[in-house]
Amino acid sequence: MAPLPSLLSFLFPILLSLSPTLSTNSEGNALHALRSRLSDPTNVLQSWDPTLVNPCTWFHITCDSNNHVIRLDLGNSNISGSLGPELGQLKHLKFLELYRNNIGGKIPKELGNLKNLISMDLYSNRFEGGIPKSFAKLKSLRFLRLNDNKLTGPIPRKLATLSGLKVFDVSDNDLCGTIPVDGPFGSFPMESFKNNRLNGPELQGLVSYDFGC
């Protein structure tokens, strides 16, 4: 009879190969959790197989040379449903493209954990609730397009600390309060804020009061 340690060392690789949950990584788990929240009538997510070691072979996913997910591109894919906190686990993500779908619910605050994010395009969906204040942590962000949704509340003033932000569009929502002028907000055109209930731009150096929010 084989000693117990020898037996375990023999069985462990076999058990590992039989267990899809052990062979996936956290990024694959996060994306599979996203898939479970979405309705996909045209099967654009059919290649998202959770039993694979990593999701780099899935359609609409781009990875870097280290097999980290850096791009999620599901724009104009006829999907609906909602987003969950699991997306915050995609720590290496640089491009989040979910525009022109029917995704609703609130935008998860966990997206503020995506420190490498350069572009976030959530426009032309049905997102509601406020713009997460956690977005102020996205110091690499250059493009943030949230237009044509159902977002409410004020524009978080902390977003003015995103010095690298080049494009910011929240037009065609139901936002209220004043438009910041600090940081990059001094360069955004007024078209970026149209069709809301915004009172801006605020007067420089004065406290912003979000009347009507």
Rank of each mutant, 00 (worst) to 15 (best):
residue 73 D to W: 11
residue 104 G to A: 07
residue 189 P to Y: 00
residue 67 N to K: 07
residue 98 L to S: 10
residue 2 A to Q: 01
residue 192 S to V: 04
residue 159 L to N: 03
residue 55 P to F: 09
residue 60 H to F: 00
residue 95 F to T: 12
residue 5 P to I: 01
residue 192 S to G: 06
residue 40 D to M: 14
residue 32 H to S: 14
residue 118 I to G: 13
residue 30 A to F: 07
residue 203 L to Y: 04
residue 10 F to C: 04
residue 50 P to L: 06
residue 208 S to F: 02
residue 58 W to H: 01
residue 175 L to P: 12
residue 12 F to E: 07
residue 1 M to E: 03
residue 15 L to E: 14
residue 205 G to W: 13
residue 19 S to T: 13
residue 153 G to P: 14
residue 204 Q to M: 11
residue 189 P to Q: 02
residue 39 S to C: 11
residue 14 I to V: 15
residue 65 S to L: 03
residue 29 N to I: 15
residue 198 L to R: 01
residue 103 I to R: 06
residue 12 F to M: 10
residue 15 L to K: 15
residue 145 R to P: 09
residue 140 S to P: 14
residue 196 N to Q: 03
residue 80 S to A: 04
residue 68 H to L: 11
residue 10 F to M: 08
residue 204 Q to C: 06
residue 26 S to C: 12
residue 11 L to K: 00
residue 41 P to D: 10
residue 14 I to A: 05
residue 54 N to L: 13
residue 184 P to C: 07
residue 107 I to W: 12
residue 190 M to W: 00
residue 22 L to A: 13
residue 185 F to K: 00
residue 26 S to T: 15
residue 66 N to V: 03
residue 21 T to I: 12
residue 40 D to L: 15
residue 194 K to Y: 03
residue 34 L to M: 14
residue 74 L to W: 02
residue 148 D to L: 01
residue 145 R to A: 02
residue 82 S to T: 13
residue 13 P to F: 09
residue 87 L to G: 01
residue 154 P to M: 11
residue 184 P to H: 03
residue 20 P to A: 06
residue 113 N to E: 04
residue 141 L to Y: 05
residue 113 N to V: 00
residue 122 L to K: 14
residue 68 H to N: 13
residue 42 T to Y: 12
residue 201 P to G: 02
residue 102 N to H: 14
residue 70 I to G: 07
residue 83 L to K: 00
residue 3 P to G: 02
residue 59 F to T: 15
residue 103 I to D: 03
residue 204 Q to P: 09
residue 168 F to T: 06
residue 18 L to H: 15
residue 184 P to R: 04
residue 154 P to E: 08
residue 180 P to I: 04
residue 89 Q to T: 09
residue 156 P to T: 02
residue 101 N to A: 09
residue 30 A to W: 08
residue 163 S to Y: 12
residue 181 V to Q: 04
residue 162 L to Q: 00
residue 182 D to C: 03
residue 42 T to W: 10
residue 110 E to S: 11
residue 117 L to W: 00
residue 52 L to P: 10
residue 2 A to C: 08
residue 164 G to C: 03
residue 110 E to T: 05
residue 88 G to V: 09
residue 39 S to I: 15
residue 177 G to R: 06
residue 148 D to P: 13
residue 74 L to Y: 02
residue 138 L to I: 02
residue 146 L to H: 08
residue 167 V to M: 03
residue 163 S to A: 08
residue 139 K to P: 11
residue 100 R to C: 13
residue 205 G to D: 03
residue 36 S to R: 00
residue 197 R to H: 05
residue 152 T to M: 11
residue 175 L to C: 09
residue 49 D to I: 04
residue 31 L to T: 12
residue 75 G to D: 14
residue 212 G to Q: 01
residue 202 E to K: 07
residue 183 G to R: 11
residue 176 C to T: 12
residue 80 S to G: 03
residue 9 S to G: 05
residue 17 S to K: 08
residue 131 I to S: 08
residue 54 N to Y: 14
residue 36 S to Q: 01
residue 31 L to F: 09
residue 121 D to A: 05
residue 185 F to D: 03
residue 173 N to L: 09
residue 29 N to G: 11
